[in-house]
Amino acid sequence: MTARSLESGAPLGERAATSSLWTRIWQNDAPGYLFLLPWFIGFFGLTIGPIITSFYLSFTDFDLLTSPEWVGANNYIRMFTNDPKFWASMRVTMMFVIFSVPLKLAFALGVAMLLNRGMRGLPLYRALFYLPSLLGASVAIAILWRQIFARDGLVNDFLSIFGIVGPSWISTPQYSLWTIIILAVWQFGSPMIIFLAGLRQIPQDMYEAASLDGASRWRQFIKITLPLLTPVVFFNAIIQTIEAFKSFTPAFIISGGTGNPINSTLFYTLYLYQEAFGFFRMGYASALAWVLLALVGMFTAFSFLTSKYWVHYDE
């Protein structure tokens, strides 16, 4: 799946290849594996075991307190044929992914561009914009969000200036998901920083040359900035999408772990968590997790396959 995008340039050991097979392996493959050694130790020592276990558990009834019991594909069958909450939570998460990811990325890129211009007070702005992301998802955030989006909250105070009487946004089923999307977008700091780092990597002489040729700012953005930024855009898009699919804490703290009102904020992983730790069905929860993995995996594979058409690496 990652074949094309990962072919990086000059293989370091190639020129030194000699007749001996061992020498060739040593010169070609060994450096790569040596650099990956810590990762391999972690992967085989700590990561892969629990992953395989969770895959096995997805074919069992496992109540956490007694031994798991093999049930074949039952969990998966139930999920697709007899579980309205599965579909409801899938819908919520899909909505979240579709709206929060592009908004967050656009915001992050826009602000990063703005901040990349040399100006007075730049470090201050950068820090101010990153501050919300520092907060993470804490109890304090849950309380804050209520102060803003409740009936007598800040948003409605503002709307009342225009004579609009707003509902209690955070607790009305039609709008509650949007308050969580806004929370996600509000914490756009991480992709912004990554965009900034990406912008910094673009060699300035390219702009100088373009500017001498009389290229407008917009043309510079389209012809230079965007193409050279594509590896970073690609990274941010993939990562933010994966994270959005797995998003758990915002909904957990804001709805107190219930997914209410009327399951309108029942994120997929929140449902998974309820099944696992609330209702003691770790087997079913594991099956839910693997369905999510398959979904996200397909999305990622698709992104990598299409990336060769729009992601430009320097090679």
């Binding site: 849950a142 209520r146 409740a150 009936r151 509902p167 209690s168 955070i170 607790s171 009305t172 089923p173 509650s176 804001i254 709805s255 107190g256 772990g257 219930t258 209410n260 009102p261």
Partner: peptide, 11 residues
């Protein structure tokens, strides 16, 4: 009202 009541998430 229901949208007020839904503000109660437990804590």
């Amino acid at each position: 009202a229901p949208d007020d009541q839904a503000l109660d998430t437990g804590p």
